[in-house]
């Protein structure tokens, strides 16, 4: 069989000069069961086109595409009173914890014989710079307090209970 015509068509095909009708001839030729071995190498090229034309979308194609492109479902949660106050509750919890630690530390480090009342000594401005003068003022003041205690009816050897319990 003379395949010269087919070879010419192929040559024109490679040169992109074939018409639609000539390409159809080529496809029909290569779709035959028997193709000469010299042309068999080109068979896959033309049978590929025919096979691909038969390829169709599966029945589930649409649903799969839609599944991929659909927006994710966003669940809307109600902003409840509890959720709104949660940051403040957390802050209060932190305050409670730190205050607890601070209180415990304060208790642990407080020297027991020091009065727990903290006076404003930082604001004091001494009237005297000479300790001797301060001592004399102190002596006078203590004598005045001594007289006051005596007038309050306290006697020597009365315990401090006389001041803070019985006489109050």
């Amino acid at each position: 069989m003379d395949y010269k015509y087919i070879e010419q068509l192929l040559e024109r095909y490679w040169q992109c000069e074939t018409t639609v009708a000539e390409e159809r001839i080529l496809r029909e030729f290569f779709s035959q069961d028997e193709v000469p071995s010299s042309l068999a190498t080109y068979r896959d090229l033309f049978s590929y086109e025919a096979e691909e034309q038969q390829t169709a979308l599966g029945a589930d194609f649409d649903s799969r595409v839609l599944e991929k492109i659909e927006e994710p479902v966003v669940s809307i949660r109600r902003n409840t009173w509890k959720m709104r106050t949660m940051p403040f509750l957390r802050a209060a919890a932190v305050v409670a914890v730190v205050a607890g630690i601070g209180f415990a530390a304060q208790r642990a480090f407080t020297v027991s014989d020091e009065p727990a009342v903290s006076y404003n000594y930082g604001a004091y401005q001494d009237t005297y710079t000479d300790p001797q003068v301060a001592y004399e003022q102190m002596s006078d003041a203590l004598k005045l307090v001594s007289d006051g205690l005596r007038q309050a009816g306290l006697e020597p050897k009365d315990s401090v209970k006389s001041l803070n319990n019985e006489k109050l």
Partner: peptide
Amino acid sequence: TRRLLIVTLALVLTLAAQAKKETQDFVTQ
């Protein structure tokens, strides 16, 4: 950042509350 801010605020408030309150002696009052 918000959480850090809340914790910092809580710490500052706590420390402020922990600051020892000074008592004024009677004559000062």
